[in-house]
Amino acid sequence: MAKIVVDVMLKPEILDPQGQAIGSALPRLGFSFAKSVRQGKRFEIEVEGQPTQIQLEEIGKAAETLLANPVIENFSVRVEN
């Protein structure tokens, strides 16, 4: 069973206060090398067998209309086995 993975991230120019809060917590735990954190979302869509090119394109459309909001977010689609 393969998975189509969609990663969604806020665009770089959009303020990410959640990422900032996490980023300021890491040094307190000793991870002082962490310069900044951005928080995103990951969607895993299971399909039977290997996903076809058409299915990947369809998921791209789904990402554009529902999974991500292109006004504030970027997304990427990939296959994971």
Binding site: L10, L15, D16, P17, Q18, A21, N69, V71, I72
Partner: peptide, 17 residues
Amino acid sequence: LCESHLLPGALTRNHGL
């Protein structure tokens, strides 16, 4: 309304969280 594209832009997390 923003998600519906009837209005432009988006509403995101308050800057103070």
